[in-house]
Design a binder for these strands. Sequence first.
RNA 1: GGGCAUAUAGCUCAGUCGGCAGAGCGCUACGCUCACAUCGUAGAGGUCGCUGGUUCAAGUCCAGCUAUGCCCACCA
Length: 893
Amino acid sequence: MKTLDPQYDPSGSEKAIYEKWVSEGYFGSSPEPEKDGYCIVIPPPNVTGALHMGHALNNSIQDILIRWRRMQGRETLWLPGTDHAGIATQNVVEKQLATEGKSRHDLGREKFVRKVWEWREQYGDRIIDQLKRLGCSCDWSRQRFTLDEGLSKAVRTVFVALYNEGKLYRGHYIINWCPKCLTALSDDEVEHKSQPGKLWHMRYPIVGEEGYVVVATTRPETMLGDTGVAVNPKDPRYKSFVGKSVRLPFVDRDIPIVADEAVDMEFGTGCVKITPAHDHNDYQIGKRHDLEELNVMTDEAVINSNGGPFEGMDRMECRKELVKRLEDMDLLEKTEDYELNLSVCYRCDTAIEPRLSEQWFVRMRELAQPAIEAAKSGRVKFHPQRWSKVYYDWLENVRDWCISRQLWWGHPIPVWYCQDCGRTIVAVETPTECPDCANENLEPDPDVLDTWFSSALWPFSTLGWPEETEDLNATTYPTDTLVTARDIIYFWVARMVMMGEKFMGKEPFSHVLIHGTILDEIGRRMSKSLGNGIDPIEMIDIYGADAVRFSLINLTIEGQDVKLSPKKFEMGRNFTNKIWNATRFALMKMPAELDTSGPLDMDELTVYDRWILTRLSETIETVTAEQEDFRLNPAVSEIYSFFWNDLCDWYLESIKQDLSDDAPASRRQNAARVFLAVLDSALRLLHPYMPYITEELWQYLNRYFPARTLGEARNPSESIMIARWPEATDFPRFGEDVERMEMVKKAVSAVRNLRGTRDIKQRKELSALFDPSSEANASVLKSQLPLISRLGNLKSIDVKVGISAPDHSATELVPHLTLYVPLGEVVDLEQERARLQKKLDEQTRYIMGVEMKLSNKQFVNKAPQQVVERERERLARLRELEGKIRMTLLQMV
RNA sequence: GGGCAUAUAGCUCAGUCGGCAGAGCGCUACGCUCACAUCGUAGAGGUCGCUGGUUCAAGUCCAGCUAUGCCCACCA
């Protein structure tokens, strides 16, 4: 007989178990069109990434769903992979180069890109290995990378198709430029930070006359690129100025004063400097008034030759110097403190420099419509539902998407320019000559695509599209559930639906499960800069993967954020230990010869056997229903309390005697069989949440007791991973036995209660007299005397309706049950009396409350009959109890 | 400026159809009884953010308010 250690140590077994799963091919999938499929595509983590708590939560959820559906017999596919993460990865490798004193320009593009690939080969699977430690049951044979060959083909195919339809265009527009990453960013990649700043009021002298206008700005350095000044046409203060010009200091350019509705008369001076090349609004205003667009900065946001005396200065340096000189020239009217909304790069936090440049854009309006429709029609459902509103808001107000990035790492834009005739060639395959002039001198577009462009195709590009592969069929696409966090609803979710509708003609998934964000103990986002992150791998090292998974799910309620601390994982660790020990007990106590050949005779079972089977059936039903609703937290809580409270605290304690050597053989057989069946199903219920420990223990159970009699697993000997998900109907329900067991629990609790409140040692055996108020209850108790005396540590029990209190006894009164325990001289009668009196007062108060309610005609007439009836019963119960207490008090005198 | 979320025990949070306020942690007392001290038994601890309203009945529904957090938005 196998004896387990008294404490569960996950570190010894997790790795071997995982390897076994992989080598047996349990994660694999063979999606065929006629199968009942269940497919999830992983949100591909960045290759540069290390697993953080957000990933741990995200992937735990996916693994739970996949494992559960797999056990239900669905053809599951969890498709894994990583994202090439343009900027992030390029930055990492550039940083590495920098330590060698080199830049990517020293290497040149080709060599640099090769270097990044090398980096990926070396480090890119780190996060994959970490996902494996978490226990993720992805089909690793299908692992994809957003930059691998198949996906590149998908990207180019989509690009060409959109271009040919006129949904892609290249143009000279103002975009968000990161002067550190040296690339354009989409609007969504810009973050906004509130920051204290200043509002400088500058004087621009009017040309040809005395005086000046005062413009207010938060960015004085951009004045070098001003090509106009705008006022509101309705502003009486400036009416006479419209049409005149001002002379720009330092660069001595005359620029016009124009009237534009967009100017807010209330703000600042009501007079705005216009810098079309360095501000989104100014760009629009400039277009309307045909103002010159003058770029005054280099890629690195250093003032260029258009900046006159400030050429060569960094923008911030220039700002300082420029303000100082304005002041010297008496052109600075005043400086105000101002809270500004600073735009920063989401990757490096550098202040964005809006900048005019040549970029590629996707026309979004039309593409967005089917994506909106997909959600409106219910084909794509958000959980919780409120996130659909965020999704709609973005899609309904979507702006064109800037997709070109001035990076080297990424999908090259499949466009070539004929150096001879100037023709633009957009093609899936690299062209060798110009179709117009046959010239071979073709220059490729230097830019790459936004990483999110390839991510948008992920749900079908990973399945082989545009090739017509076997994997791409109704079993896999649309996939079932996308599990993700709210911060990429725009970046990713909306764009996937858009592209899925466009190129597959179908939504890419039916459900979007948005989970909460993991925060630190005091509610801040976990971030590298704050250093407040908790490393999931470190937690797995300490507590085990199952404990980490369980704890995370147990803390995560329906999309609510989670405040996390390392201590929270102790709960999961404790639970694993509980499961371990319940099984340990089973293995220790099983009879040497367990006969499981015939069916279990239900008539031979005890009250507690039938009770636990009923509770199990109910638990299975609830858990399955909650999971169907994506409510994993209520599901797992249900299993937790079933396992700990019902199974361990009550059932296991109840059968201890039955499993001992001196118990009758048939009783021992039956108790063992029921216990085994319950344990087996409980482990199967727990498996999606805690895959490792359930597998390990299940194997132990299998090895020694391969045959089952209830809730038969599909393949008892192989792996719990592919065992059958339990069904409520696997077990009979016995309503009456549940009631009986509740009565027994009440009696035992009364004894324990009496002990606890009177400082009577657990070890001391007591004599108990129960007055169960009805003959029915009396017979229930009488039939369970051995159990009650065992659980209550009693040496004798009397059960009699209407029994009167013996002398020198302590009394415990609960509804329908009075317990007397004679304590001889040790009983403190004064205290007993006080206790009873207090209880009596309490009952009287309750009774008054209920009487009041019942004497209220409104209540009796309007409340449902059921509720009124319940109150009446309650009153009867309370009165009975009150009477009982009074009587006992009288007897004590 | 708009939108969303949150407010319940000392802490972190559950609470579905409106019908007797729950869990984990922490705290107190007792117990190393042969599954588990990562445990067991018992206990203390609540004006459900505030103000109104609907209802026989409100933690739960409605309105308003306060506080906190997040998202969106071109007032320089």
